[in-house]
Design a protein around this nucleic acid. Sequence first.
DNA 1: TGAAATGTTGGGGCG
DNA 2: ACGCCCCAACATTTC
Length: 459
Amino acid sequence: MAGTGAAGARHQAIAARPQIVWFRRDLRLADNPALAAAAAAGPVVPVFVWCPQEEEPWAPGSASRWWLHRSLEALERDLRRHRLRLVVRQGPALEVLRELSAEVDAAGVHWNRLYEPAAERRDRRVKRELRAAGLQASSHNAALLVEPWEVSTAAGEPYRVFTPFWRACMAQLDPPPPEPAPSLQAPERWPDASPIAELGLEPEVDWAGGLAAEWTPGEAAAGERLERFLEQPVARYAAARDLPAVEGTSRLSPHLHFGEIGPRQVWHEIHGRGIQADRYLTELGWREFAHHLLHHFPSTPEQPLRSEFERFPWRDDPDGLRAWQRGRTGFPLVDAGLRQLWETGWMHNRVRMVAASFLVKDLLIPWQQGARWFWDTLVDADLANNTLGWQWTAGCGADAAPFFRVFNPQLQAAKADPDRAYVRRWLPELDTPDYPAPIVDHAAARRRALEALRRVKPG
DNA sequence: TGAAATGTTGGGGCG
DNA sequence: ACGCCCCAACATTTC
């Protein structure tokens, strides 16, 4: 622990050994407990380590890497304003941190926790090995209102149903007010580091124009996005959140994923202004629930939580999958969603549900194949949220949709996009001979899905 | 955070 | 005036 405190730091500046802050998906300076802990103890050496092999089989996808590149550039700019650099390295995290610690004679390493199975395994080992080597190693919570082990059912089990989970969270929720960016002190000498561009995160072929037009990664942009969202009347969110043609949602998901803003900051902005936003906070609740589940059920990115679904008669249908991915199913709302995803790295949540339901229930294609496509194309691809969403849709997960719930893409389109502004926006060939006929008869596909689902039902 | 099928009700047309 | 039928509109049930 840092015994000196910020007050004494100035006098001890000459003597204090540097503290390494290992940035991962907490790419912000405010409300960053690891950074605050390091800054309180001495000069700060910020490092980002790129080692996608350590995250397999869920190394960041193409859209995520594009975002990460831009977000690291933003972080580097923000750090420079505090006269700090961002040390960028490649290689196994433990090796890199060991070497860097030796190079700068660091006293400790600080980071904020992740909850993906591969990251948890690696971080446990890193902490153990760094401590064995005589370094401080401290981890913190920057990403969640309630960490996965902080709530459990009366029986001491992890929650599997959202409503009681969130009720329990709300009952004990008292997040500390977020700290502003700490004052930061540079080390006496900087280690060598490679430029961000050397990580090769940017696409070689420039397919990302649509992403760049839509998004600005980084802490400042995240704050502006939240500000813009909260300036809207609360009633507008409730009315517009299910209309994909309207900018009614916060669009904070990629910023939250990369930790450019944290849920505590969102929470306090809302409460500090006295905004009544339960409906939106519930969405943050689903994010918390997803992390709770991923931590407690680490096999769920690959395996259904409800094991009876292992015998579900999925179809192998490469043509169907390709039609879905390209937005050529002949169902306008589904196709518009997948085009929006391809062009902007994002899809409206209502449309995600309809598009996912179509893949899983109309085409009977394994939910994992949809999850993998989203993983590679979403700028907000998040293993916890993606896993929960797909298992929920398929009916094999926690708090899953009842097996009989099948979205009707035409009915959903009529409700969510009554004037067809959304489908027209993303499907220029709609209403021309170039637009494909429906690849399935939904009524028949629905009956087929219900028959298949009835077979896996226990009893 | 569904949709479709089935059941019920009540107003109005009409013999 | 009365009963019958039709069929929205709504409620319930079933998948």
